[in-house]
Simulated assay, not measured.
Amino acid sequence: MDNKLPTIKEIAKRLNVSVSTVSRALSDHPRIGLRTKTQVQQLAKELGYEPNAKAISFKQQKSFVVGVVLPFIREEFFSQAISGIEAAAMESNYTILFGQSYDDVEREKSVVNAMRKQRVDGLLISLSKETNQYEHLRQLEKYNIPVVYFDRVPPFEKANKVFCNLYKGTVEMINWLLSRGYKRIALINGPDKLSASKERLNGYIEGHSRRKLKVDMQLVEKTDLSKEGTYAAMKSLLSQKNRPQAIITFNEYVHMDAVQYAAQQNILVNKEIVFASYANLPITNYTAHPPLVSVEQYPYGQGEKAMEIMIRLLNGKATDAHENEAVHKEEIPATLVLHQAAVY
């Protein structure tokens, strides 16, 4: 038995009609009569005919593939974002091509270049912690490939991006901690190159300023997001004569490393020193010491919204010449979440 997939030519030969007639009947063209259309579609179904995706892509000048580049797929935050991206993509019959930068800017450039060569229709990206130059992404404009940033977004305005307002979330977090008597609040921030780090620091300063409190910069440390970097930050904070009463960490992964270090120093976590964090990932519910409070960053929603913007941009190519010139910016409000399990 011939195991080859059936073709349009085979259907045309069996029905004694032209290939163009079969093609139009399968695409429900109004110029094809109902009887012929029904015969073609019924035979195609019986033979198990499937359209040639490559041929369709060539004809429409689209691959129906969107590239997604992010730091680590294994991180729960980004896996949730991927789920949101896929859900929105499937609704519009797009598929996703994933790549990881591993938080390395050279790797990010390599992955972006590979996706360009794969002729993706568009690119969604959450920047690496080292990225502060954007030429490798701006070059995609020459190939008419739109870019939408999410979560880790560039600082400039002329960019399609979806992000959580971490500045406002941090101000709210500082206010919450101060209102509960925690006066010495430390911050373990992320790499300087990330705009999200600047937002956290500015929110930290503003939160104190609104209470007419002077910021003690000795309470502000940085981590490169590695365990070693976080341990070094914790060591510096705990070595101070007047230790912090609360510590805000850059994200839940930094939180877990910070708490681990504190426990090793026999600190009673969330009693002697309380911890707060960002992202509100479900994984913290399974840890011995979840943060007392978190800023919810809605990774699923960010991914879903970023893909919806991308679909509008891609559809705009064919319907509105000005669509790609517009900048799409979606700010997702941050929400403060109290973890009851962390209250002892």
Rank of each mutant, 00 (worst) to 15 (best):
A258R: 00
K45Q: 15
A321P: 02
Y143K: 13
I174R: 11
Q245R: 02
Y278S: 06
S236D: 06
H289V: 01
Q218C: 07
L47I: 05
L314A: 07
M310Q: 06
A321T: 10
F98A: 01
E130R: 11
F78W: 06
N16P: 01
S239I: 01
S101D: 04
F250Y: 15
Q133Y: 12
P146N: 00
L201C: 01
L26I: 11
Y204D: 10
M173R: 12
K129Y: 04
V120M: 10
F250R: 00
A44F: 02
I332N: 08
S110A: 14
N16Q: 14
N270S: 10
V162Y: 10
N285F: 08
A326G: 04
K271Q: 15
V105R: 15
E323C: 14
E157L: 07
E91Y: 02
K129E: 12
K317P: 00
A262K: 14
Y94C: 05
E252K: 07
L47W: 04
D151G: 05
N175L: 05
I73T: 15
V17K: 03
M256A: 09
K9I: 12
E10G: 03
E199I: 03
V69M: 02
A318L: 08
I174N: 10
Y143M: 10
P154R: 11
G190M: 01
I188F: 09
K158I: 08
T284S: 11
Q100M: 14
P244H: 03
V171I: 14
D121N: 09
E108H: 13
Q245G: 11
L238R: 13
K317R: 12
N189Y: 05
A12G: 09
S294P: 09
L15H: 07
Q260F: 07
L166R: 11
I174A: 09
R312P: 02
A88D: 07
R24G: 03
V327D: 06
